[in-house]
């Protein structure tokens, strides 16, 4: 597999949200606006890329039976790093995302990539895989956030261009399911056309 397709597979072909349907908790919980989705996605990208690199380096040294606990410790360390960094340097976004940042630890994508890819591949492919998957996740979350923000409050990235309140259900939890369902539908349709 070339490095380019290794990088781009996260966007459409193996998009974590639209195709693999992994990491649904932050996907549904944080995408009330485009900027929240993007912040969450970028934080996850950082954790994915860093933990993929470290895990690909140490995978050969870890006994098989303590593989998962070791991976989790590495991932948790990076999540805490990004949590502290955001609290210090981006306090506004940090208070918006709140609990969801520590929850990156249990995001299936991160452990999934560590287990399925990084532990079996070299450093560079793992880094590219982490970045690609993370940016694919960011792309999906931003798209979902933008859709919900547009329909729910008539704005994108906080710039309001439709006055009034919009369809309120889209900023609430049920709207996340509706919007995600329709986005997956559109993605599948596009994918079918391509093949």
């Amino acid at each position: 597999m070339s490095q380019l397709s290794n990088f781009t597979k996260g966007f459409l072909r193996e998009n974590p949200v639209f195709v693999l349907l992994l990491g649904m908790c932050p996907t549904l919980g944080t995408t009330t606006s485009a900027i929240n989705g993007m912040g969450m996605g970028l934080a996850t990208t950082f954790v994915l890329a860093m933990s993929n690199v470290v895990i690909s380096l140490i995978a050969g040294l870890i006994p098989a039976k303590v593989r998962i606990p070791s991976f989790i410790v590495v991932i948790a360390a990076f999540v805490t790093v990004i949590d502290l960094a955001m609290a210090g340097f981006l306090p506004a976004l940090h208070s918006q995302l709140g609990l969801f940042i520590p929850l990156i630890v249990v995001n299936c994508i991160v452990l999934g990539r560590a287990e399925a890819f990084a532990s079996k591949n070299g450093v560079l492919p793992s880094l590219i895989d982490g970045l690609g998957m993370g940016l694919g996740f960011t792309f999906a979350l931003t798209l979902l956030g933008a859709t919900r923000e547009l329909l729910g409050s008539g704005a994108i990235f906080g710039f309001k261009f439709i006055s009034g309140d919009g369809i309120l259900v889209f900023v609430l939890a049920p709207g996340a399911f509706f919007a995600l369902g329709f986005l997956i539908l559109i993605m599948n349709k596009l994918a079918k056309k391509q093949s």
Partner: peptide, 8 residues
């Protein structure tokens, strides 16, 4: 600080 629904 608050954790109210964005948009509402």
């Amino acid at each position: 600080s608050h954790k109210e629904t964005p948009g509402l």
